[in-house]
Design a protein around this nucleic acid. Sequence first.
DNA 1: TGAAAACTGTACCGCCGGTACAGGAGGGGA
DNA 2: TCCCCTCCTGTACCGGCGGTACAGTTTTCA
Lengths: 209, 209
Amino acid sequence: MRKGEETRTRILDVAEAAVLQKGFGGTSIEELIAETGITKSGFFYHFRDKNELAKALLNRYIENDERIYDEIFSRARELTGDPLQSFLLGLKLLSELLSDLPNGHPGCLVATVCYYERLFDREIQETNRNAVLAWRRRFGRMLREIMAVYPPREPVDVDQLADMVSSVLEGGIVLSKTLKEPNTLAEQVLMLRTFVKMLFLPVAEMPRA
Amino acid sequence: MRKGEETRTRILDVAEAAVLQKGFGGTSIEELIAETGITKSGFFYHFRDKNELAKALLNRYIENDERIYDEIFSRARELTGDPLQSFLLGLKLLSELLSDLPNGHPGCLVATVCYYERLFDREIQETNRNAVLAWRRRFGRMLREIMAVYPPREPVDVDQLADMVSSVLEGGIVLSKTLKEPNTLAEQVLMLRTFVKMLFLPVAEMPRA
DNA sequence: TGAAAACTGTACCGCCGGTACAGGAGGGGA
DNA sequence: TCCCCTCCTGTACCGGCGGTACAGTTTTCA
């Protein structure tokens, strides 16, 4: 039946929004069923407990996250063959996508899980860890392609540089949310772009330098 | 009379550790009183409710945070008169301090509050916002001093660059905690240092360039 | 030594996560 | 047409937790 999937998705939608605003501990199942118009029994038909809900929520979030990065960076790749230019373009596209979010970025579930860790089982913690490692591999792969063509101006570890992308995104989200300045996140991504540009682009080719 | 302050501090110590691991919603008052060996009535003698506890916790955390930055960067300032060199040294000292933490960074309360926002009153949200703005002013002040001497190689907004420091710290904490790699945070700070160095240090003076 | 500060003890309330289980609507296949 | 399976609803209950109320007790310090 497809009806069940639809209800499940509706629960996950409501839960995701609530969890990003109040954390897992601050989100009650009762409020979720009230907003989705389902009964408590109905909820527990779809999810055995809160941990199971968190698992489904996190997996869905990570999949969606990966899909967005796939789209952005493959689009950037189509527009230019140069690995550096396509990476810089990708960061530009990402920044534009982020600044187009009407109410700012709603928050990252990976960070939410990180700050609730002790109340989740090992499986969720592993899933979360793997999500961050996947980011490292993704950005690391692109950075290695760049380094094969452009020698970095300063010696840098590829994985650490890849992590820098994740750091700026996660940190930018925290800043943006806390300051209630939706644009701060997009600006941070552009600042990171400046860093990457400066690190790999030869001095001679740099504008106004 | 001073006994009360001591108990209050003990509650705050236990609460801070718990909240950083499980968030506010995931931390119960009952577990706090169990660990501090106090009764429920005793707890509510010191704090009217959970919100009041959060307020005290956040204020104390921010004060301590400011104190640490004051110490690090004033020490760096004593060692060299050049604003750029002292800032770079400060980041180095910060990175060393972070990598010396035995179990890695326990987490940032500002981020915890950020991911629980909707359940706090305006006062706490304002306090949190002001903490981030204080970071922006602090790093912005130092960066302005640098820019008065060293023209940046790329055009950058000072506040955005100052925010980059906070971003990398907050993001680095999330990565470090999630990956269970205590050193990642310190590495990210050094990566940020490389960025600042490259942005301001003249090409001629740069090593192996 | 006495008043204020710093608690303890007890009883209670309502919300929440979770369990148990019975039953019902609705659609799809034999 | 009938039955079975999915997808729920309804009801009742449990223990933990945040919070209140308030009376009583110990500790501290001036």
